[in-house]
């Protein structure tokens, strides 16, 4: 069996990433899970968080997703993301701007479900900011 998994990240508008990886860590709704070659078939919802792609024993790329779905097959791992940002492609200022925008959305929301959605967005944005700070600190 091949020792890599084909990782695919798809947004509604286009295919974002398609490359082989040794392990992928996906932030599932009920906890993070790692996908290695030969993983049992699984479908899971994805909460806002960071997807880690491992190659040669270390993290190759980290991508922030704002929620979505993951389909895992023994040789394939597909993530359908609502929104995805590669951590390599975003700086601190942009992440902070997202947090600010999300905070404003929380304040502006009136209906209960809007508030809930905005709070979720804020939590995601804060997570992204923390991740960006973590990478730039090293």
């Amino acid at each position: 069996m091949a020792n890599t998994v084909q990782f695919e990240l798809v947004s509604p508008e286009r295919l974002l990433v398609s490359k082989p990886a040794e392990m992928i860590v996906v932030p599932g709704a009920e906890g993070d899970f790692g996908v290695l070659p030969g993983h049992a078939p699984m479908i899971s919802t994805v909460r806002p968080g960071i997807i880690g792609i491992y190659r040669d024993g270390k993290i190759d790329e980290r991508i922030f997703v704002a929620g979505g779905f993951a389909e895992v097959m023994p040789d394939r791992c597909t993530v359908l993301a609502d929104e995805a940002i590669s951590l390599a492609g975003i700086d601190r200022a942009a992440a902070e701007a997202r947090v600010r925008a999300a905070k404003e959305a929380v304040d502006a929301a009136v209906r209960e479900e809007d508030i809930r959605a905005a709070k979720q967005r804020l939590a995601g944005a804060e997570l992204l900011l923390k991740a960006v700070e973590g990478t730039s600190g090293h």
Binding site: P12, P41, M42, S44, F69, M73
Partner: peptide, 25 residues
């Protein structure tokens, strides 16, 4: 021909998250 999937959380919950998304798609 397809493998049987595991679901996390359960089928119903995924489906109720997936269907509104599918509508938009």
């Amino acid at each position: 021909a397809r493998a049987v999937y595991e679901y996390e959380p359960d089928e119903g919950e995924i489906l109720s998250a997936l269907l509104p998304r599918n509508l938009a798609v």
